[in-house]
Design a protein around this nucleic acid. Structure first.
Length: 707
DNA sequence: GATCCTCGAGTTCC
DNA sequence: CTCGAGGATC
C-alpha cells in the first residue's frame, strides 16, 4: 500500500497529457466502482483499494487544477457554503398524489382509471385487468435532478410543486446520485426521486448526537430534511443520504418508451438507482396483494415507508386520464394506517375564529405519535364530539391525520372514569361574552360579537395582513395581540395610521423594527382588487371568489352597485332567483350572493371601505379593464370536462379578451364543450349558439373568430 | 336527489 | 390536512 502511495507522489511531475489520461482513467474506474457499490450494491473492489484510487485522483487534480471537472468523483465533498437557496421554477410541476386508505378506495381508483380509459368494468376477464407499476412510498423528500448531456447540472427540492429550492451542491454529495449518467443519455433529462435517510444510519446519527448532548431527530425524514437544507454542503456530505429514482420529468431528445416500467429500466441503464421492490401488478387485486406484502415487509426494510404507490404503466393512458387539481388521475398513494397512540383528554377549550366560529380544541396529556409530541388537537365541531362520544377525562386515541394534523380518532368508553364530563357548547363567547348562536342545520356555532369580540378582531386582522391578502410583512400574531390590547387598533384602517412612535415601546419592538412595520403598511397600500376583496373577509369569499368578482365587475364601485341593487325585493321569490347580477359571476350561487348583498349594504362596512380608501389604499382598475385580444367582445360559457381545469380555460379566454358567463343564453357567442357536456350543450344547440371543442378553442385563441 | 368537484375556514407542530 | 358546504352537472 505505501509503495503505491509513493509511486503516486512521484508521478505528480509527469507531463500534462499523461496526467490527463490518468485522471480520465481514474474517474472512469471510480464512477464504475461507485455505481457497483451504491447503485448495484455489488462492489468488486475493497474499500481500501477504492480509497487508493480516490486519493491518487485527488493528488493529480491538486497538482493540475486545470484537469478538474465538475463530474469528478472527488467533487462530492461539498462546495462553498451559501447564504440562502435560490428559487427554482419546475418546468413541469411536481404534482402531489391523491391518497387511498382502504381496499374500497383502491377499487374506486381502479374503476375511475377504467372509466377514464373507456374500458369495461373490472371483473369480467382476469386478463382484462389494467397494469399498474407498484412501488414503495419512501418517507423522504422528493427532489428533481436535471441532467444536461448526461451531466448533473441542477438539483432542486419539490417545494410547493411549482417552485422549489436549488440544492444542487447538497445533492452532489449523495453517492447514489450519479454526477454523470452512463450509456447514451439524451441532451436533457429530468429525473425525479426520493432522498431518504437509511434507518441504520439514522439510528447511528441519533446515538452520536445524544452522546454529544445534542438534540436528536424525531424521525429519518426530518434528519434527511435537515441534511438537505444545510447551507454548507460539507455538512450534508457528512450525512449518508440515499436516493431512489422513480419518475421522469422533462426530457429532450429522449426516445420515450411506451411504459413507465421501461422508463425505470432506462433509468437503471443510465446508472440511476431504482428500487428493486418495484413490481408490475394486475388491476386492483394485484395492487392489494402488493400492499399487503409491503405491509408485512415494512418492519424489515432498511428505510421508512409510509405506504405504496400505484401508477398506470401505460404512458399514453396517462395522457388520456390527465390531472385533477394538482394530482394526476393515473396514480394514487395507498397509505398505511396512521400511527395511533393513547392519551387522556384533559380539557376542551373553545377557540373563536375570524368568522366567529366556535371550535372545540382538545387539550391532551402530551403524547408522542407519528413523529411529534401532540398536546392539542382540533375536534372540528360539536357534532363531531357527539359522534365520537368524547368526554373530558376520557382515555382517547390520537393520530396524526396524513401524519401532520393531530386528531382525536375515538374515545375508549370502557376506560371512562366516573367523573368524566360531557362537552357542552358555551352559551356565551369565552372571549367577549356575547351570545353564541348556532343556525338551523349548520354544524358550526358562532360568536355573535362581531368585531367587538377581541378574538374575531384578532383573527380578522391576521387574515387582513396575510400573505394572500394585503401581504403586510412583520404583522405577526404577537404584534397584533399587543396592538389590540393597547387599543391602538380596533379596525383594519388603524393599521395604516400607526407611526413608529406609537409602536416603539411595545415588546420586541425597537426603533428599527417599528419603522419596518410602518414601511410595510405603506408598501401594502398599493394592492390589487382581488387581494383587497379577499382581505375584507366577507363570509364565503375566499381567494378564488374574490378573483372571480374582480374579474367580473372590474371595479369595486360596480360590485357595490350590483350588491345593493340586488337586495331582495319580494320575500316570496324563490331563493335561487334572487341576486341575478351577483349570480352572473361564475362560482357565485344564492348563498354567496346573499352574503355579498348583506355585507355591502351594511353602513359600517361602507364606512370602512371609505376610510380604507381615504387612508391611501389603491389598486389599478385598468389591468382588469377589457383586454383587447382576438376574442374581445365575445361571450363564452364553459361546460364539460376539458384537458385543463375550467379555471385555466377561463383564464385563457379572458387573457384573449373574451368574457365568461355562467349560463347559456341568446347572448352567448360560444359554448366551449368538453367531455360529458350536459344541459348547457343541449340549450346551446337549441338556441343555435356555436359550440367549440378543445381544438377549435385553441385555434380560436390563436387566430380569433373568422368573420 | 345524488354525486363530483372546488372552495372556504379552521387547525397543529417545528 | 380535514371537514362542511356551495356550485355545477347528471
Amino acid at each position: 500500500m505505501s509503495s503505491i502511495g509513493r509511486v503516486n507522489i512521484q508521478r505528480l511531475d509527469v507531463r500534462l497529457d499523461e496526467a490527463r489520461a490518468r485522471t480520465d482513467q481514474l474517474r472512469a474506474q471510480l464512477h464504475e466502482h461507485n455505481h457497483r457499490y451504491y447503485v448495484l450494491d455489488d462492489p468488486t473492489v475493497s474499500d481500501a483499494e477504492y480509497d487508493l484510487l480516490f486519493r491518487e485522483l485527488q493528488a493529480l487534480e491538486a497538482a493540475h487544477p486545470e484537469l478538474l471537472t465538475a463530474d469528478s468523483p472527488t467533487q462530492r465533498v461539498g462546495g462553498a457554503a451559501v447564504k440562502a437557496f435560490a428559487e427554482v421554477r419546475h418546468r413541469l410541476p411536481m404534482q402531489s398524489l391523491n391518497n387511498a386508505f382502504s381496499e374500497q378506495e383502491l377499487r374506486d381508483f381502479d374503476r375511475r382509471v377504467r372509466e377514464g380509459l373507456g374500458l369495461p368494468a373490472s371483473g369480467d376477464l382476469p386478463s382484462a385487468e389494467v397494469e399498474y407499476v407498484a412501488e414503495p412510498k419512501l418517507d423522504g423528500l422528493a427532489v428533481s435532478l436535471i441532467y444536461e448531456q448526461g451531466l448533473l447540472v441542477r438539483g432542486a427540492t419539490r417545494g410547493d410543486g411549482t417552485t422549489g429550492e436549488d440544492i444542487t451542491e447538497n445533492l452532489r454529495t449523495i453517492r447514489r446520485i450519479p454526477l454523470r449518467l452512463r450509456g447514451e443519455p439524451p441532451p436533457l433529462l429530468e429525473v425525479r426521486g426520493e432522498v431518504y435517510y437509511p434507518l441504520a444510519d439514522f439510528r447511528r446519527l441519533n446515538a452520536e448526537m445524544e452522546a454529544k448532548g445534542q438534540k436528536t431527530f424525531v424521525n429519518p425524514r426530518n434528519a434527511a430534511a435537515g441534511a438537505l437544507r444545510q447551507l454548507d454542503p460539507k455538512i450534508t456530505a457528512g450525512r449518508p443520504l440515499a436516493f431512489y429514482a422513480y419518475a421522469l420529468g422533462v426530457s429532450e431528445g429522449l426516445t420515450l418508451p411506451r411504459q413507465h416500467w421501461q422508463v425505470l429500466q432506462q433509468f437503471q441503464a443510465f446508472g440511476l438507482p431504482v428500487s428493486d421492490l418495484i413490481e408490475r401488478v394486475a388491476g386492483a387485486p394485484g395492487c392489494w396483494q402488493y400492499y399487503l406484502a409491503m405491509q408485512a415487509r415494512r418492519a424489515s426494510l432498511p428505510f421508512d415507508i409510509d405506504g405504496v404507490v400505484y401508477k398506470l404503466n401505460d404512458l399514453a393512458g396517462r395522457e388520456e386520464l390527465g390531472s385533477v387539481s394538482r394530482a394526476p388521475r393515473w396514480a394514487v398513494a395507498h397509505k398505511f394506517p396512521a400511527e395511533e397512540a393513547e392519551t387522556v383528554l384533559l380539557d376542551v377549550e373553545f377557540q373563536i375564529g375570524r368568522t366567529g366560529a366556535v371550535t372545540p380544541v382538545a387539550r391532551l396529556k402530551p403524547v408522542f405519535v407519528g413523529g411529534a409530541t401532540v398536546s392539542n388537537a382540533t375536534l372540528h365541531n360539536l357534532d363531531e364530539v357527539a359522534r365520537k362520544d368524547v368526554r373530558i377525562g376520557d382515555a382517547v386515541i390520537v393520530r396524526r391525520a396524513g401524519d401532520v394534523i393531530p386528531e382525536v380518532a375515538r374515545s375508549l368508553p370502557e376506560k371512562r372514569p366516573a367523573d368524566a364530563r360531557v362537552v357542552v357548547l358555551p352559551a356565551q363567547c369565552p372571549v367577549c361574552g356575547s351570545p353564541v348562536a348556532r343556525e338551523e342545520g349548520e354544524a358550526v356555532a358562532r360568536c355573535t360579537g362581531g368585531l367587538t369580540c377581541r378574538a374575531q378582531l384578532h383573527a380578522g386582522l391576521l387574515h387582513f395582513v396575510g400573505r394572500r391578502a394585503m401581504d403586510m410583512e412583520g404583522y405577526g400574531e404577537k404584534l397584533i395581540t399587543q396592538l389590540i390590547e393597547r387599543k391602538l387598533v380596533s379596525s383594519p384602517v388603524d393599521l395604516f395610521k400607526l407611526d413608529a412612535a406609537a409602536l416603539a415601546g411595545l415588546e420586541r419592538m425597537a426603533e428599527k423594527s417599528a419603522q419596518n412595520v410602518v414601511d410595510a403598511a405603506t408598501k401594502a397600500k398599493a394592492t390589487t382588487l382581488p387581494r383587497f376583496l379577499f382581505a375584507l373577509g366577507i363570509r364565503d369569499v375566499g381567494e378564488s371568489t374574490a378573483e372571480a368578482l374582480a374579474r367580473h365587475f372590474v371595479s369595486l364601485k360596480a360590485l357595490i352597485e350590483a350588491a345593493q341593487s340586488d337586495a331582495p325585493t319580494a320575500e316570496a321569490e324563490k331563493k335561487k332567483d334572487r341576486f341575478p347580477l351577483l349570480q352572473a359571476v361564475p362560482d357565485v350561487g344564492p348563498e354567496v350572493a346573499a352574503q355579498l348583498a348583506r355585507w355591502f349594504t351594511d353602513p359600517h362596512h361602507l364606512d370602512l371601505l371609505a376610510e380604507l380608501r381615504a387612508v391611501g389604499i389603491e389598486w389599478s382598475e385598468q389591468a382588469a379593464v377589457v383586454i383587447e385580444g382576438p376574442l374581445s367582445g365575445k361571450t363564452f360559457v364553459i361546460t364539460g370536462t376539458l384537458p385543463e381545469s375550467r379555471d385555466a380555460v377561463g383564464a385563457r379566454i379572458e387573457a384573449a379578451g373574451g368574457k365568461l358567463t355562467g349560463s347559456v343564453s341568446a347572448k352567448t357567442d360560444f359554448l366551449v364543450a368538453g367531455e360529458a357536456a350536459g344541459s348547457k350543450l343541449a340549450k346551446a344547440e337549441k338556441l343555435g349558439v356555436a359550440v367549440l371543442g378543445w381544438d377549435a378553442l385553441l385555434q380560436l385563441l390563436e387566430q380569433g373568430p373568422q368573420l
